[in-house]
Design a protein around this nucleic acid. Structure first.
Lengths: 161, 161
DNA sequence: CCTTTATCTAAAGTGCACTTTAGAAACTAT
DNA sequence: ATAGTTTCTAAAGTGCACTTTAGATAAAGG
């Protein structure tokens, strides 16, 4: 029970501490380590120990996931953080900004698709060749194997309606 | 080779025909049948035969997927189509409209999150208690097991920044 | 008629993001 | 010292949306 360890000043946070503070499952944190999103060290007994800054890293991961980014993309973005020193507010600001740009793009793509859908609803077709939604998406098909319901698809061109 | 079957006037479209006209893989169409999104009949030899209207159904599925809807949700929406007669343009218009409402909501949710992200970037926190992004999402956690990168999450409240 | 292509079923595999399980070792509290 | 957590690893399981594989049957073309 890690209940009252006097703020764990001793030697870093345990995985349980981190789980408690982020709301993540312990197993998820281990998974994120395997994916290279956090880099705990080990204590004498072989247990993971984390820095306080890792709370921030994991929180960032959680938010990024909420926005629909994959682990791979999140790892990429987080490469922008310093490796040796603790990231500063400015560091976070910097990578969050790039992240925001992606988000803007996603929203724009969604809005474009919505507008096209409006056209299709108007004509009642929603399936025929005239409908831009299909013509462009037919080619786009197959973005890697699994489910491709990540919205960042190839931002349909504006014209051709 | 179903190349020149005189428009397949005979007895409905084969699964291959449908694949050619929608761009879907044959296996995907079988999967969609298993999921209840299309209901082909069988010919004497036990092969699937589809109506022309099924091109439309499948195209609808494809577009819906592009927008990030799950098969379950798509099936739900498509329950709104008539079972016995061929759906009319008005039928498609009707279900597409409900669909558009969902989409609007998703966009709105994304925009709200973006705005909050702006606040977080501004303060450089992106992880602490002050940040609305975590406080609300911590609770929300766990939307079914697998990957939950579907953006339709619980539309964060506007206030509290 | 015979070969080629298409289709069939059932089962297993894929990729992402995890969780669950099992058995063992470490740590904490009493 | 001992009981009760926690943590460890490795491996398997989960859910979604499919694809791939294998072996068998059906349909089409020459």
């Amino acid at each position: 029970m890690s209940k009252n360890r006097r703020l764990a000043i001793r030697s870093g946070l345990t995985i349980g501490d981190l789980a408690a503070r982020t709301g993540l499952a312990v197993s998820a944190i281990r998974y994120y380590e395997a994916e290279g999103l956090v880099h705990p060290w080990r204590n004498a007994g072989g247990q993971r120990r984390f820095e306080r800054a890792d709370i921030r890293r994991l929180s960032f991961v959680m938010v990024a996931q909420k926005f629909g980014f994959t682990i791979a993309r999140i790892r990429e973005v987080m490469q922008g953080l310093p490796d040796q020193r603790t990231p500063t507010a400015a560091d976070w600001r910097r990578i969050s900004t790039g992240f925001r740009a992606d988000l803007d793009q996603q929203i724009a793509a969604l809005e474009q698709m919505r507008d096209k859908l409006d056209g299709c609803i108007g004509c009642g077709c929603l399936s025929m060749k005239a409908c831009t939604l299909y013509n462009e998406s037919d080619q786009a098909q197959h973005y890697g194997a699994g489910p491709r319901y990540l919205m960042g698809d190839p931002a349909p061109e504006a014209g051709a309606d």
